[in-house]
Each structure stands twice: as C-alpha cells, then as structure tokens.
Write a protein that binds this DNA or RNA. Sequence first.
DNA 1: AGAAACCATTCTGACGGGTGTCCACCCGT
Length: 574
Amino acid sequence: MTNAEIAAVFEQIADLLEFQGANPFRVRAYRTAARTISELTEPVAELAHAGPDALTELPGIGADLADKITTLVNTGSLPLLEELKAQVPESVLTLMRVPGLGPKRVAAIYNKLKIKTLEELREACLQHKIRDLEGFGAKTEENILKGIEAALLATQRILWCDADQIVQEILAHLEGTKGLRRLAPAGSYRRGKDTVGDLDFLAVADDPNPVMDRLAKYRAVKDVIARGDTKMSVVLQSGLHVDLRVVPEESFGAALQYFTGSKEHNVILRGMAKDLGLKINEYGVFRGDKRIAGREEEEVYGALGLPWFPPELREGRKEFEWAAAGSLPELITLEDIRGDLHMHSTWSDGLATIEEMAEAARKKGYQYIAITDHSQRVSVANGLNPERLLSQWNALDQLAGKWRNFRILKGVEVDILEDGRLDLPDEVLNQADWVVASVHFGQNQSREEITRRIIGALKHPAVCAIAHPTGRLLLERPAYQVDLDAVLRAARDYGKMMELNAHPRRLDLDDVACAAAKAYGVPIAISTDAHSINGLEAMRYGVLQARRGGLTKADVVNTLPWGELKRRLPRYRR
DNA sequence: AGAAACCATTCTGACGGGTGTCCACCCGT
C-alpha cells in the first residue's frame, strides 16, 4: 500500500468523523497524519515492517495510528473505516462539497430529513423543507440551491500556467482603478504551486468600492458571492473563485503575508508570535494594542527575528528550521539556467527543426542544448531507430562549427522497454553526449516491476538521467506506481541525475521529490521536453517547482557549462 | 488522536471576515 493510499484512508476517516461531530482534535490528528504520510519520501509500508517504533517516531503518529498503519499495510483495510462507512452513507460526504454546507449543517440535514444525495437536497430546497430546519432560513435555502450547481460543476483546480494567464489579465483589468495604490496576487499562485484552486488578490486603495466594482466588471465574472467592507468573492464562468481583499497601506505587508499562506505556514508563524507575546493578523504584528510591523512582509517576519521567506518555501515544512539554523537556501532563478537538456525536433514528434530550436535557445542566452528525440519503440512519435539516430548525429556534426559558444549535444530520449531493456543498442547509446531514459509503455505494471526497470536504466553506463520520472500528467493522470525513494537512492549510488520535467502538465519530480533528491545529493536537470520553439519557455515552470523544492543553483546541473556538467557523470570520469 | 508531564490529566494550529439568523457556522490563508 502506497503512502498516498494510506493518507487517503486517513483523510476519509477524518471526513467521516467530522461529519459525526467527533472530537475536533481527533479529526485533526487524522488529517495531520495524512499530510505527514503523503509528504514522506520513504514508503510507510517499509517502516511498518520495521516495527511500530519506526512509525511512532514520525511526528503526529502515536501508538494508535501506528497500529492502524500496520493493519492497513498487512490487510489492505481498516475496521474503523468499514464501521464508519456502515454508519454514514458515503454519498452524504458529497453534500459537504456544497459551498456553505459544513459538517454541522449537513449532519442536521441528514439527521432530520434523511437526505443523502445532491439530487434529494435539491428537491428538498424546491419544496422549501430546508428553511424550516432550526438554524436555517429562506436565504440559506436559496444559497444551497445555488451551491448545488457549483458542487456539480466540481470546482476543478487549474494548472499554474493557466492561472498565470488569468492573473495577468485581472491585474491588467484592475490596474489604473481610481484610488488603487498597490495590487498583488497572493495565495497558492504566488507560492508557485503546480496547480491552483482559486485566485487571491490583495489591494491597497483609498476606497475599496471602486476596486470591487471594477472586479465585478471583469469579463469572465459570473457571480458575486460575497462583498463586504474589505473582502469580496466572485466566481468566474469556469467555476474558479477569485477573492479580493482591500487593506490600509500600513497593513499591506501583513495582509500579503497572511493571504499568501500557506495556512500551515501561517499557523506556525502565528504560534511563534504568540510565544513571543505578540499577535499577528492580516493588519499587522501587535504587542498589546500597539502595531509594531505590517507595511512590508520583511517587517512582519523581521518583528519575529525571522528572515523574509520566498513564497515558494511557505508550506510549513522545513522553512522555519532552516531559518533558525540560518540555512535558508538561496533559491535558483531562471537567469541561472545555461542550457536545456531535453527537447524534440522534426526528426521525431517535434514541430521545429534542430536549427530552429538551436536559434531559439541561443536567443535565450543558453550555451548548449541536447536534442533528445524519441527512440524507435515510440512509433507514434516517429521514434528514431539506430540508423536514423546516427544520421541525425552526423547532421549535428555538420552544424557543429556554425555557432561560437553554443553547442548542440547528441542526445536521445531512450525508452525503457516493458522488460527493462533499453530501446537502443549499447554501441549507439555509448556514442551519445547525453542520454535520458524514460518510461512510456507498460505504465500499468506493478510498483516492483516499474521500479526495477527504472533502477536498471540508471545502472546502465550510458544513461545520464531519468526523464519525467513519475509519468504523471497533472489533473489528468496519476503517477505510475514507482518507489521513488528507491529510485533516488539508486541515482545516488550510481552517480546519476534526475530530470525535473518543466512541462506545465508534468512538473515531475514534484516539490517534495526535489527536496528528497537534494537530501540524497542527487543532482537535478531542469528540462523543458519542448516539442516546439515555444515549448522552451516552460523552463520558468520548472524553475518555480525547483524553488518549491528548496533547490539552489548548485543543486541544478544545467546551471553549469557543459564541460563542468559532464564531469559530474561517471561515464566521463577517468 | 498525540504529546507533555500532572502517569490520569490537560492541552492541543492562529486569526478574522461575511452571512444569516439571532450566536453559529462556514470560509479563507
């Protein structure tokens, strides 16, 4: 059983317990455990086999949860979950997806009216049965009816790159509003999370009303959900929520800090403030009634003796430990990148010629690129057999003298076949400058098989890195089953590298895996996997993800000149 | 449910806005 599956069980238990009105701290214990487990790199199942002590050493896991994990790992199920499911029809939990309905109200609706589905809830609203319940009224009933539509729309998350487009559009739309003094996007968008659930904007204005009026007029706004003196929520036609908060100038930093989050980061920060006899809210840092900071984020953190945290690190993971130790990483930037080590050309399924890709890369200031077209097995992508690949490399030799200070590496993205063999013969692979290996076929194999295939590829002397190591497609397809921890250890042992695929739908390794790779000392190559000139622009998404993983320039190999990069690979060492 | 220290008990993640109904609930970071 994978960490993600165990975490999902605990999340479900938390939902069911919450619905039953259980002790909120008990509910939180399950949620905390779920988060801990899902962010762990090593498989919890292995810890479970090592014995209960290995599990209870994890923060937030005590004797009881350790026992439940062990049961889950050994039997694949959990009696508590089965009991809860028997007591609460699972469909009731979908009622909590209706905005405005939490555990208390859903419990009331279910207990009094025996309503179990969204359809039954809609009926009850239309027959005005909801408004007669204690604590409910006509207005609530109306809002529930509206909310059901929203729940059915299934408020999806969107890719960071898509969020970026909308954010830029809204910023441009609000820019120039009368009395608007400052404006900034916040939330998970600002933290650079690979997918974004809603958009948050923060403004300073002489009067909030013109700004709110203007947001309401944004072309894609469908509905204004709430509007008060300082806070406004709208929903776009796509179902995406946009929140706007307007604060006084002297609170801008505190509000930006609060609104950027994450929630977990804020909770820790505010707890630290409390210990110092201070209070932090979105209006500032307060000692008693006296505001001692708030205009800029630096002041807010500074009031607690903390450095300013890059938003990408504000996830409530290790950042406060790093700050205490004075070892907050200096994160990599787009300007540090000197080359791109994964891209395709018209030789396989790319849209641009090698020369076009090279010209575009040179314009970006790169010193080198690797052309890594697909190997023969990927026939739908016009993958290259040995003859065509060698002929491509001949063509590269012809181009070699064309540019000064720019180099095209002879590369290939070789498939790791279902049986673990590589899709090209050794004598061909050995002639390449740069080889990335990846899994495209047999993604449904067992965790053991896929892990063995990838580790086998890492062991091959010609292979430099594993490309898109989990195969996930964000919002589309989950990662294949793979023991990433074992893969990272193998990369360390064989002196190999791992790719962070910068394509905005992939972005694997993810942030947590990047941090794990760094901890093992495994170098990362951030590569775009571009299939067109425009695809090269994806580098910024990869860098953003790397920053979330706490990577510095030194952790990323394509910040190096090629000459230095290659010396990091065993095959080039003597 | 975990964790600390009180080994049975106590505390536990911070803080505030908006809404609808009458103080609670839900929501956001």
